[in-house]
Amino acid sequence: MQKSFRAALATCCAVAAATLAHAQTDPTTEDFEKFRAVMEDANPAELWEVKGEQLWKTRRGPKNASLEQCDLGLGPGVVKGAYVQLPRYFADVGTVMDAERRIVHCMVTLQGFSFEEIAKRPFSSGNYTPDPVSIVTFVAAQSRDMKIAVPQSHPKERATWELGKAIFHYRAGPWDFSCATCHGEDGKRIRTQNLPNFTKHDQAPRSFIGWPGYRMTGGVMHSLQWRMNDCFRQQRFPEPGYASDTITALLTYMGVNSNGFVYKGPGIKR
């Protein structure tokens, strides 16, 4: 009973995602969306949710502490609903932080891990998954089926949105690309890959929904930190710093543009 309900839910979600993505569909996208609907019933991302929960609750690091006192914006230890309200301003650091950056901040301040060590190898490859990726998957799952509500009440949150918008439109590099070159128009494709227009409220949720995501290419779990990094690689830019202001600003810009849509939890990616 529960299984069939979940399958129906997954199908609904996939159909909604497909509708959201673009008015016109092509056969490749349709096939993938059907496949995604089947896969979402048993998304391997759940493995990282479980691992992330263990990492959250276990006493670790030089300070032998858990992350259960980590404040993700809704108070120390409150995980439910936190992910859909990030990035946000944090008074203790006087700046806006996205989910993974805040988790890393907690690993550094509460557990005593070194930021530099974490930043040395921050992305999944092969059998390796960095701890922040598992933890952000767990945190994201605790906002499943909640509305995206990235706050804009603090002046620094509004300034970060503006900065993100400016970075999104910054054309540079040998190929003159900005984010907007590929993601600023409706209905475009690179090869067969559809390009959501992240400047539009109806398509921006494609930057938020489905992340963190289990990527079938390579069979690894990836977060938005990785997604932004790989976008800049393809933009022919130098490499952005992990958990840097640039990434937070872009995630704020796209997150706020996604407000009001329902987040469905960690997803599946090609």
Binding site: L163, I167, A172, P174, R233, F237, P238, E239, P240, G241
Partner: peptide
């Protein structure tokens, strides 16, 4: 901000910014 946050990697040098 991008000039502060980015670093050169491989052939992708900082002058690209």
């Amino acid at each position: 901000v991008v000039k502060r946050d980015f670093h050169a990697r491989g052939i992708a040098t900082m002058d690209r910014l």
